[in-house]
Amino acid sequence: MNMPFESNRNNWMLSVTLLSVVLGMLLAAALKTQQTVKLASGIPTTRVSGLTQLILDEKDRNKRLQGEITDLRGKVDKYEKVMGQGGSQSQVLKDELQKAKLFAGLVPAVGDGVEVVLRDSAKQIPVDADPEIKQEYIIHDVDLGAFVNVLRANGAEAISISDQDSDQRVVAITPILCDAATIKVNGVRMTSPFTITAVGPPNVMKTALEMQNGLISQFRFIDGLTKSMVKVRTGSDLVVPAYTGVTSLKYARAAESGGSPR
C-alpha cells in the first residue's frame, strides 16, 4: 500500500520487538523472584487480603487442634477412671493423680474467686507527652505479671488470663512476655482487654489488690487512669480452663533421692 511508511513501520517493529525481549526477561526475573520470596517465607501470597485469610485459616486450625487436645485429655481422664474402678489401691492412685493434675493446671478448675479486667485506657493519649507517660496508658506484660503475683500471694489456687480470642491457664512454666504490640501468654498472642480469673479466697484477694499502697492504688499515677484501666469483682463458681500447651519435658527428670531438700 503506501510504501513510504512501510520502512518506518518495520523500523518500529524491530525496536519494539528488541525491547520486548528485554521486557520478557524482566518479567521472567520478577516472576522468579516473587516465587523465591514465597518459597522462602512459606507464605503463598504477599497481598494483605490473602494474608488476612491465611491468618483466619490458621486461627480456625488452632481452635480445632485446641479442641482435639481437650478431647484427648478427656479420654485420658476416662481411662484413668476405668483404671480407678479396679480396686481400692488404684482408686487411691487415681485420686492422687487427679489432685496432682488439678495442682498442675491440667484439668479445668471451678470455684469462688475474683475477676480482674485490665484494659488499655480509652482516653486520648496526649500527643506531646513524654514516651514514658504515653506508656502509662497501655497494659504491659509486667502489669499482668504483677497482678498474677499478688493474687498468688493471697491464696489464688488456679489462675487464667483471657482476651476475646483465647483463655490461657497460668501454670508453673507459663511465660507472660510482651511481643511487639501484643502480650504472649503460654506463647499465645493476646490483646487488651485482658481478664485475669483467679480461684481462691475472693475477699482476701480483692482486699489485697485494693488496699492502701496496694497494687491498684499504685497502678498509674495519672489522674483517673487507674479507674478506667482496672476493674476487680468477686464471683462464685468461676471457671478456669485447663492448660492446653505442651506438657512433655525435654530437660528435667525426676531426681532419684525423692527430692528431699538438703
Binding site: T17, S20, L23, G24, M25, L27, A28, T36
Partner: peptide
C-alpha cells in the same frame, strides 16, 4: 512479532539459572 520476542526473552531468563 513483539509478543513472540517477549516470550523468547521470558524463556531465556526462566530457563537460565538466574536469581535475584
Amino acid at each position: 512479532v513483539p509478543l513472540f520476542g517477549m516470550l523468547v526473552g521470558f524463556a531465556i531468563i526462566y530457563m537460565a539459572n538466574v536469581t535475584v
